[in-house]
Design a protein around this nucleic acid. Sequence first.
DNA 1: ATCCAGGGCGGGT
DNA 2: ACCCGCCCTGGA
Length: 342
Amino acid sequence: MNNVRFWDNHIYFVNMTDFEPKKIFENGQTFRWQENQGLYTFVAGPYLASLKTLDTAEKNQLVFQNVITTAEVDSPVVALLNGGTQQDYTNFWHGYFDMERDYENLRHNLAAVDQHLATAMEYGKGMRILNQEFFEVIISFILSANNNIKRIQQGISKITELAGDKMDSAAGVYYKFPTPAQVAAMSIEDLTQIAKVGYRALYIVKAAQMIANQEVDLEEISAMDYEAAHKELLRLPGVGPKVADCILLFGNGREMAFPVDTWVIKVMNLYYLGNEKNSKKIKADGLQRFGQLAGIAQQYLFYHAREHKIGSKENVAKPEDSVAPKAKKDKVNAIAKTKPKA
DNA sequence: ATCCAGGGCGGGT
DNA sequence: ACCCGCCCTGGA
């Protein structure tokens, strides 16, 4: 992995086509980050780290330290500050940042499906699907239902404060995401009055209890096929079809999970369906149209649609470019395999 | 004031 | 199976 360098407890991603902090953190897959002048500080597992794209002066420093070569100063370099050593990378970050996946190849293949997807893939270039911790994603997306991003972020932050283990850090006070047992032990009062999660408080505690006592076994779910895993997650209170798909896509590595939220409804109707309101049918169409990587295609479509407010009232589409022909099955099968072996 | 924000639940057909 | 009203909360 020559794209990854190590120096002074930091990890550097050099000359990668698909690795932009903004697009990684601001596509809705994770809520636990804060941005300050391009520096994204976040907690992942036991790590408190920051991600940023380096400017030329910063890259010249790395040349001085023999981290990158003079020739590489002209290439993009993304720094993971306080990411740790090569061992931390191998054990954690490599999986977290989905480094096994060839995103350039993936974009190329999905862009071939149709012009709408091609536009979304180009716009979202730089995005990656993070492999986040299963339980954290479950709680986070239960909280996301019928909610807005600011309040989701605030709620998760408070939950970590109220129930998570404190991290030892000079950068400030941060908390690890609590375990199922820790969330199960939270009081409804704290969740409603401090975390402000509203009626989701009961869902969160109950779901954590079911997971903690293995009434719903996350390891077993991980071993199930997609359909069975989706069905099993629906047993958790506050988890419906859309949330279950978010959980499977972002927390369980299921690239065929196709979450249908309001933005996906808008963009799928604008591009392909016209006026379909049934989420189940939209999901079925997405899977048929985009194949095994439908969930990832969905994430690029979602990002593009939300950034442009596509399909919203103040940005209504012209009818003539609203419906495209159905995708052919052989094309769908052809793009199914883009994940290279290690 | 009314609506809505990355839906889910429960009761009704 | 579908459909529909309702739900904490707070900003527009």
